[in-house]
């Protein structure tokens, strides 16, 4: 068989493998409980929006989505603000401990969450941040910042030093140069970084669940409510799951050009 055709076929098979489970989740969300438990159907026999109706009319449900989105946005903003200067430092300077610092940043990702969650809970409670969005956003920075620094450093190393030097000769101060000249040059890098922040903050459950109880409770934690006395409400669970996938698709759609460009530069 033709080589490029074989490639396309391979990719198509893989994408089918990725999407069958998602397809199953989606059609499950349009089925009623009886149909789900009654037998296997490849397509909803009695198409119903009941599951979605439940979610959109119950504030404890939909506030979960709002809460998740709030802390994810906060996390992206905080991560970018602190990671940009740090990445600049790593890309332009050598300084005491630079190589160890990066490994240390990365090493925080390696802490097993199970036991570390308790001190986290104590720490954020003691500074009065428990059950706030900012607490989750800050905790997630532990995961997103090292990655953000790494990605941004790659993009920044692609900008020649001469650009900095020329700007200083032209009389730009460092902050002005950084904001007006440098940041626009690494736009794609910022897009890609924001995407990766989203990717980690949106999907994480343990920290988000531990650091919240009511006011900032994420959707992922609320989903456990579907397990009731009468067993699991599969349809509702599936609908809630579908709704957690949609923001991800929207985000990647919006940053697709940046991501594609970032990937094209080989700096992800």
């Amino acid at each position: 068989m033709d080589y490029s055709l074989r490639k396309k076929l391979g990719l198509a098979l893989y994408i089918v493998f990725l999407f069958i489970p998602i397809y199953w989740l989606v059609i499950m969300s349009f089925k009623g409980t009886e149909e789900i438990l009654g037998g296997l159907t490849l397509w909803p026999q009695s198409f119903t929006f009941d599951n979605y109706h439940t979610i959109f009319t119950d504030s404890t449900w939909y506030m979960g989505y709002v809460n998740s989105m709030i802390y994810v946005s906060m996390n992206m903003a905080i991560t970018l603000v602190v990671a940009l200067p740090a990445a600049y430092a790593f890309s332009r300077y050598r300084f005491i401990g630079d190589s160890h610092l990066f490994f240390w940043l990365l090493s925080n990702r390696m802490a097993p969450p199970a036991v570390f969650l308790l001190p986290f809970f104590q720490l954020y409670s003691s500074v009065g941040l428990f059950d706030t969005h900012i607490a989750v956003a800050l905790a997630h920075c532990l995961f997103t910042v090292p990655l953000a620094v790494w990605i941004l450093e790659g993009f920044m190393s692609g900008v020649p030093r001469e650009v900095d030097e020329t700007a200083y000769i032209d009389g730009y101060s460092f902050p002005k140069f950084f904001l007006r000249i440098f940041l626009p040059m690494i736009r794609s890098g910022i897009g890609v970084t924001a995407f990766f922040c989203f990717m980690f903050s949106w999907v994480e459950l343990l920290f988000a669940r531990t650091l919240t109880s009511v006011d900032a409770k994420p959707i992922a934690a609320i989903m456990t409510r579907t397990v009731g006395a009468a067993g699991i409400d599969w349809g509702l669970l599936a609908a809630a799951g579908v709704l957690t996938i949609i923001p991800g698709i929207l985000v990647i759609w919006f940053v697709r050009n940046h991501v594609a460009k970032g990937f094209a530069l080989g700096r992800v």
């Binding site: 994408i15 069958i20 949106w202 999907v203 459950l205 799951g241 923001p247 985000v251 697709r256």
Partner: peptide, 23 residues
């Protein structure tokens, strides 16, 4: 294809569990 391949990475981890449970 970039977007399609990336989608599993954007699903909350517990939902990944749910998807495979249902599947």
């Amino acid at each position: 294809s970039l977007i399609l391949v990336a989608i599993p990475l954007l699903i909350p981890w517990n939902v990944v569990g749910t998807i495979w449970q249902i599947f």
